[in-house]
């Protein structure tokens, strides 16, 4: 299953050293979520670290994307808006500052 990811994003992935082609981007990151990808230091780090953070963060924040970003905001809850701000702060830090280093593992 292919995803029609924007050309800018594909360019960015290429800049990071990941060989993906516009119009032929797969569904999941091949470097981590396939068995050959997982059995590398880089792949295992991505899968296990990401999973741990998602589990820890969702319990700590008392909700995840569907819980806070969709249901919580739909119920006009301030704590949910705050949690979503947190999701984006964390996400932006990851894609801009941490992910490029993890890719070098």
């Amino acid at each position: 299953m292919m995803s029609n990811i924007s050309p800018e994003t594909v360019g960015l992935l290429n800049d990071l050293g990941l060989e993906y082609e516009y119009g032929k981007v797969p569904y999941v990151l091949q470097e981590a979520f396939t068995w050959p990808g997982f059995f590398t230091l880089r792949g295992a780090t991505i899968v296990i670290l990401a999973g741990f953070l998602v589990g820890f963060g969702a319990r700590y924040a008392g909700g995840c994307t569907s819980g806070h970003a969709i249901s919580g905001i739909a119920n006009l809850q301030w704590p949910s808006l705050l949690a979503v701000c947190g999701f984006f702060i964390g996400g932006l830090i990851m894609v801009n500052f941490i992910f490029p280093f993890i890719l070098k593992l």
Partner: peptide, 9 residues
């Protein structure tokens, strides 16, 4: 908690 979740997401 949100920041930690966002990092993982």
């Amino acid at each position: 908690g949100g920041i930690i979740f966002g990092l993982g997401w």
